[in-house]
């Protein structure tokens, strides 16, 4: 029973991490119509920025996490404003640009930091115990920060004019522009928001898992899987799917082992998509 409960807590913690990544990924797709192949790169970069701030600049870890958020957000903002904006309506070009950015960033990190994973332990250690249940404190800290970030994102999107504008652009860009929305002003902000979330996740999670120049690859795959399962462009779907993926991954890893766990996850997603091709909360695209 304790194994079952622990797996649930780890699954929820994983789900919160995946939710942050998937929400950013689906924000970019929903608002800009861009599949961001560099999303994993921003996660990896967030980890390296936090690592550098702690070990080279001597900053405390919380400040390092903030620095990672701002650095990845700023890079995302500039990337959208200077490069992506020019080809925003050309799906193939945006795909190539984001993929190119990922390759450039990961190669630069490889050249600067080398291929070996740096020593970057999470600053909080120990465990929370309740009877037979044992949960590492680092998981709880990450879970708490992720939940706060998700709540903050929802508050931004649903309670502010900026959020209303972003959601309006995601709903229908032409109608939003006819109502006075300025995509060129909001697209870089949306991109920065999403990449900042990826950077935050990277800064929080890489000290627990691992940090290397290639750590963005599986993150991109998981983000893809999650947003497709949730329904492309659906914020609620992405969040729900992230927790489904996290919990399924935790249980299958605990009971069947890592590789079987991934197999179970992919089969589950396949079955769900057969019966709900638009994903858990996705909607059919309205035709002309």
């Amino acid at each position: 029973m304790e194994q079952f409960s622990q797996a649930m807590i780890i699954g929820v913690s994983l789900g919160a991490q995946y939710a942050l990544l998937a929400l950013g990924f689906t924000l970019i797709f929903g608002i800009l119509g861009v599949v961001n192949f560099s999303h994993g790169g921003f996660y990896m970069l967030g980890g390296y920025v936090a690592y550098s701030c702690v070990y080279h600049l001597g900053l405390p870890y919380p400040l390092a996490v903030l620095a990672a958020v701002f650095a990845t957000g700023a890079l995302g903002y500039l990337f959208e404003l200077v490069l992506l904006e020019r080809v925003i309506d050309d799906h193939l070009s945006t795909l190539m640009l984001t993929l190119g950015l990922y390759l450039i960033v990961s190669t630069a990190v490889l050249l600067i930091f080398g291929p070996v994973s740096p020593e970057f332990p999470f600053p909080v250690s120990g465990a929370w115990r309740a009877g037979p249940i044992y949960v590492p404190l680092e998981n709880l800290v990450v879970l708490a920060v992720c939940v706060c970030a998700i709540a903050g994102l929802y508050a931004l999107l649903f309670s502010t004019d900026l959020g209303r504008g972003l959601r309006a652009l995601a709903d229908d860009r032409d109608v939003a522009m006819a109502q006075g929305m300025r995509p060129k002003l909001l697209f870089p902000l949306a991109f920065a928001l999403a990449t900042g979330l990826a950077g935050l996740t990277g800064a929080l999670v890489t000290p627990i898992l691992s940090l290397s120049p290639s750590v963005g690859d599986p993150v991109l795959a998981t983000s893809f899987l999650t947003v497709i399962l949730g329904g492309l462009g659906s914020l609620g779907g992405a969040a729900l799917a992230a927790f489904v993926v996290g919990i399924v991954e935790a249980y299958t890893s605990v009971y069947f082992g890592g590789s079987v766990g991934a197999l179970v996850l992919f089969i589950l997603v396949l079955v769900i998509l057969v019966f709900r091709p638009t994903g858990l909360l996705g909607r059919e695209i309205r035709g002309a």
Partner: peptide, 17 residues
């Protein structure tokens, strides 16, 4: 229309934006 939003929210957005 902004189809994920309510009727009220749709008109409210038009006024705000």
């Amino acid at each position: 229309t902004f189809r994920s939003a309510s009727v009220r929210e749709n008109i409210s957005r038009a006024i705000r934006f």
